[in-house]
Amino acid sequence: MYVLKHGIKRNPERRWALPDRIFFGHGACAILAGTFLKHPPLEGFYGERIIPDEGFSGNHIYVTNGLIAFDYHGYCARERLLEHHERSWASRNAGWHCMIAKVDFDLLDKTELNRRKMLGPDQYLQDPIPRARGFSSEETTRKPRQERSGLQRRWRPTTGRLFPIRHRRCAACWSIPGSAAARLR
């Protein structure tokens, strides 16, 4: 899980300068979900909200049809998204628990979002709706990730091949037998 440096969310310029995936994963998830629902590329999607217990952070909004979910990660299985979110927050905050609720408000309405301690579209440095529209259309046309032997792979458009991704801090990536990092230990 990516952790923002202190103060970035309070600084409009620094927040706007974040890469799309981090921008929509740290505070603008409601804008991404609301934009997706305005012109859904697939039928049957609705918004769901992860609401952490009192005193904890970790609020998140995504869209789902009950099986497939879409958020700043792109498309994935709903259960996988929920497991990832819970595992990430629980590893940083002992006793972290949440509930899942269907979104029953307009995700692009400033008043409704502010009532739930989220920013509305007109409270960012620039309009995030075109940015969200571009991000979601990019994600819907991207080739799906494939997993082989536990190693995450991504499509490289320039060569037309899949290549492995290793995250600097991801124990799963660096503990694969035969990997360069495992040989250096």
Rank of each mutant, 00 (worst) to 15 (best):
E112P: 01
D109K: 04
T158A: 14
E138K: 14
D104G: 05
L4S: 06
I100N: 06
G150N: 08
I31K: 03
E138V: 07
A33Q: 00
R87H: 12
K38H: 03
R169Y: 14
C173Q: 02
E13S: 11
Y46S: 10
S149F: 11
A132Q: 02
E86S: 12
I22L: 13
G55M: 13
E79R: 13
C29R: 01
P40D: 09
D127H: 05
W16P: 00
E43Y: 11
I22C: 07
R169Q: 13
I8Y: 04
I8S: 05
D122S: 13
A28N: 03
G27F: 05
Y62C: 03
F36V: 00
W89G: 02
E86M: 11
S149I: 05
W96Y: 15
L81D: 01
S91A: 15
K38E: 06
E147P: 00
N93C: 07
C29F: 04
K110C: 08
C29I: 07
E112S: 13
K143C: 01
L113C: 05
P19V: 06
C173I: 07
V103S: 04
H97L: 13
W174L: 14
R80V: 08
R156Y: 05
R166F: 15
D20V: 05
W16Q: 02
Y72G: 06
D71K: 03
R166Q: 09
A171G: 03
S179Y: 08
T159D: 12
S136I: 14
F105T: 01
H85C: 05
R154A: 03
H85N: 06
R131S: 03
A94N: 08
K110V: 11
A94L: 06
T141V: 15
H6K: 15
H60W: 01
Y124H: 07
A182P: 06
D71W: 01
R153L: 12
D109A: 07
C173L: 09
T159F: 10
V3L: 13
R116W: 04
Q146S: 01
D104P: 01
Y46K: 10
D106C: 06
L119I: 09
S91L: 12
E83K: 13
C76Q: 15
S179A: 07
G7W: 05
Q123S: 07
A94T: 12
R115W: 10
R185D: 10
C76R: 13
P128N: 03
E83N: 11
E13T: 09
Q123E: 15
H97F: 11
